[in-house]
Simulated scan of single mutants.
Amino acid sequence: MTFPLPPGACNAHCHVFGPGARFPYAPDASFLPKEDAPKEALFALNDGLGLERCVVVQSACHGFDNRATEDAVAARPDSYRGIALLPTDVEYAELTRLDTAGFRGVRFNFMGHLGRHAPIDDVLSLAARFAPLGWHLQVHGDPTLLTDLAPAFRRCPTPVVIDHIGRIDSALGINQPNFQALLKLMADERFWVKVSGMDRITRLGPPYADAQPFARMLVTEFGDRVVWGNDWPHPNHAGPIPNERQLVDLIADIAPTASARHALLVRNPERLYQFGDNT
């Protein structure tokens, strides 16, 4: 590793799959993993990399059955948090139950390959219901999300977290309209972004030299509202599966100072996911 990770460093975006024998995959899942990726493998990976905290994002392969994610968080309740997938008409009692279980937000997928997406007005209505819990809305979609749904997201009563650098195309450069749309959203202090997914937006492959400038600019310009994750085990990945150690090492390139890394890996996740006493 090229730099020491600060104590409390957080992997703010990853998943667990199964094991299918205990947590069956959804019969109408938009994708099925090639193999299980259970909590034990995630724990071993994070521990080996020095990532002491973690946010497990419910995967579309399990649909609205959040038990696999809940089980992983329950095994490490002080240092792990969850993000749920939920129908927009979920009962408030279930929201409060998941809050007690360590969930801190709801993700909605607007990517075509992940199936039909919920109407945005229904999404915002649900956000209004979970706002009292201090949760946030997490959104994942292709770059048109940043323009077509931007007016709706600005009406959201909770923070909005944009996944994977907005899934922009790194080959189109910093001045491309989609990235400029992301920067405009980030100028609103209700918006956050995950600088995960450099491996998804690259056209060059590792070490993602074409994608690094986008992540670096977001960290530089909006350093108090950016978090990092490795996206393990990299579902629906079109290119070569990333080297996990390399992904961690690249943090030093996108957040070159100790203070920037502390914000990215510790202070910002503490605020967003309510780890510890948020000091």
Rank of each mutant, 00 (worst) to 15 (best):
G276T: 10
A9E: 00
D188K: 00
N236W: 11
Q180T: 11
R81D: 01
G8Q: 00
A187Y: 11
M198N: 04
V73T: 01
M186S: 09
A41Y: 12
D163Y: 03
C10T: 08
T2A: 14
A75H: 12
H15I: 06
L95E: 02
L172K: 15
L264P: 04
E91K: 12
R67K: 12
A26S: 12
V266I: 10
A74N: 04
K34R: 15
F108P: 09
E52M: 13
V56W: 00
I162A: 01
D210E: 00
D78Y: 12
R245N: 13
T220R: 15
L172C: 13
D253F: 14
H237K: 10
F103K: 03
F179C: 05
A37Q: 03
F108M: 01
T96D: 11
P6T: 09
G82A: 05
V139L: 03
L146H: 07
A60Y: 08
I162N: 01
R225W: 02
M111A: 15
V219A: 10
I254H: 08
A26C: 11
I165A: 08
V55L: 04
A187F: 11
H140Y: 13
N243D: 15
E189R: 15
T220A: 15
N230V: 13
T279S: 14
L51G: 02
F275P: 05
T96R: 13
N66D: 02
N66S: 06
P159Q: 00
A68G: 09
F23Q: 05
C14I: 08
D210T: 07
P143R: 09
P242T: 00
